[in-house]
């Protein structure tokens, strides 16, 4: 009798490292993540940061050089079959038998989840409907568009109703309708208590839906931010649209925070004075303020700042050596 690893998180990634043979540096290095039931963890990073490697190891497709992954308490390496029962995965580029029909593929994969016969037929048609492929069940995989392949992969991932979903760039290649469909599906799954790891380059979408966001850079996890931390970190900038922006006004505004300007508007990040105070002073100085608004800083900016910071730190460390 085997017992699951005691953990409150459904997916627990601890000290995960991976160095591919013949590679000079680690693809991922000491990555720790955990996703609880009913949580969406956004997973962001530049190309080659190690997101897909992490997801592949978590899905049991690749072996870690160090560290462990527990899915619903089962070690993905030692107890692959048991752990995989709790995992559904959508790869960045779904790759199924090109000559198989969508329905046949679903029925084939359903067998691994113990779903056979009429039950399988019902389940497959219901899933195809969920992902908007109910009219394309008889299409061969090779005949499907990129977006349709993604949808089919989603249906395959949902077959066993797994508690953990690993979604690698699931939104890529989807049309706006598809993005909304997947977003709604993810919200539904979160409400059903599933743990979702969402790797994406679409940071605005991620920010919109993720409960936390993990930022990976050059194989290392540099930050995991909760929704409130993101909100705090992206406290925003005061945007002022001023007629005839000149050096004098810019000099004044620079005393109130860090500024940037496109010649029409001026943004003051983390202003030291209130909006009313700055507006009054500008009016007093004879400037015409057309509009004044508060714009939260996007996750994208925060992400880029963190990446820059991490790179700078890394080069400092390198130099000190």
């Amino acid at each position: 009798m085997q017992f699951p690893h005691p953990t409150s998180a459904l997916l627990d990634v601890s000290n995960l490292s991976k160095t591919f043979s013949r590679a000079k540096r680690a693809a991922i290095d000491d990555v720790c993540l955990s996703i609880a039931a009913g949580e969406i963890l956004g997973f962001v990073g530049l190309n080659g940061a190690g997101k897909t490697t992490t997801i592949r190891i978590a899905a049991g497709l690749s072996k870690p050089s160090a560290g462990r992954v527990f899915a619903a308490g089962f070690d993905i390496v030692q107890e692959k079959a048991r752990a995989s029962r709790h995992i559904g995965m959508v790869p960045e580029f779904p790759n199924f038998d090109p000559s198989a029909k969508a329905t046949s593929l679903l029925r084939y994969f359903a067998g691994f989840r113990g779903i056979h016969g009429k039950q399988a037929a019902d389940r497959c048609s219901s899933l195809l409907e969920d992902v908007g492929l109910d009219a394309s069940g008889d299409y061969k995989f090779r005949a499907l568009s990129q977006g349709m392949k993604k949808r089919l992969a989603l249906a395959v991932a949902m077959l066993g109703d797994p508690e953990i979903l690993l979604l690698d760039e699931v939104l890529n290649g989807l049309d706006p309708q598809g993005i909304v469909l997947v977003r709604n599906l993810m919200i539904r799954w979160r409400n059903e208590g599933k743990a979702i790891l969402l790797s994406s380059h679409l940071l605005n979408e991620t920010q919109l839906i993720a409960d936390r966001v993990a930022i990976l850079h050059e194989g290392r996890l540099i930050k995991v931010l909760s929704r409130s931390e993101i909100a705090e970190s992206t406290s925003g900038a005061l945007r002022l649209a001023i007629v005839d922006v000149d050096t004098r006004v810019l000099e004044y505004l620079a005393t109130k925070g860090s500024i940037r300007s496109d010649g029409i508007s001026v943004w003051i990040s983390d202003p030291t004075a209130s909006a009313e105070e700055i507006n009054s002073e500008l009016v007093r100085r004879g400037y015409h303020v057309k509009s004044l608004s508060f714009e939260p800083t996007s996750l994208e900016s925060l992400f880029l700042d963190l990446i820059d910071e991490s790179s700078a730190k890394a080069s400092d460390t390198e130099e000190s050596k």
Binding site: S84, F109, R113
Partner: peptide, 11 residues
């Protein structure tokens, strides 16, 4: 293509 099967509960 085999990877799509490897995600399933088998080694």
């Amino acid at each position: 293509v085999l990877e799509s099967t490897l995600v399933q509960p088998l080694t």
